[in-house]
């Protein structure tokens, strides 16, 4: 049928509207909450090294006078990957709630879990890597119930 005879209906544009809306939302999240450009439906894949493979996380258990780095159990890997891609406050709280149960040799009540998400960037000439702190977050732990605030 010739183009000028086609009667287009509004709902024909729904899939495209969805694509554009999600991609704009992804752009906003990438700029405000460090969502990885590779993720979230914004078509930023193969445009930057800012993917989850070039981000890493350090977790610390804080007790009075002691700051101990935690080894993150492999069972939490899927959780960790989501945090690296989208280090939002709720994602970090949720991971901290899981890390409360990781054993440490230290005595004393657990006061907080500190989380740091780092991104690796590369020098344009030599490709020398450097780490940039994307987000640091401390989740206080209720000393009476030994539960993270993230559970509430």
């Amino acid at each position: 049928m010739p183009q000028h005879l086609v009667h287009r209906r509004w709902f024909w544009y729904l899939p495209v509207a969805l694509l554009v809306t999600v991609a704009c939302l992804q752009l906003w999240l990438a700029y405000t909450v460090n969502l990885s450009p590779w993720a979230g439906g914004g078509f930023g894949m193969f445009s930057t090294m800012e993917g989850r493979g070039n981000r890493h996380l350090h977790a610390f258990a804080l007790r009075p006078g002691i700051r101990r780095e935690l080894d993150i159990p492999s069972s939490l890997n899927p959780h960790l990957e989501r945090v690296l891609v989208f280090p939002s406050e709720s994602a970090l709280r949720s991971l901290a709630a899981e890390l409360v149960h990781v054993p440490t040799p230290d005595a004393g009540p657990l006061a907080a879990i500190e989380l740091q998400v780092w991104a690796t960037h590369f020098d344009p000439n030599s490709l020398e890597p450097s780490g940039t702190l994307l987000r640091a977050f401390e989740v206080p732990i209720d000393p009476h119930e030994n539960r993270s605030l993230g559970d509430w």
């Binding site: 990438a30 450009p37 914004g42 930023g44 930057t48 090294m49």
Partner: peptide
């Protein structure tokens, strides 16, 4: 068209490490 437009936007304007070849 839109998928490639967003992919191009990321590469041309938003990513700091694409156009200089680092990526």
């Amino acid at each position: 068209g839109w998928a490639f437009a967003f992919a191009t936007l990321w590469k041309l304007a938003l990513s700091p490490d694409y156009l200089d070849g680092r990526f």
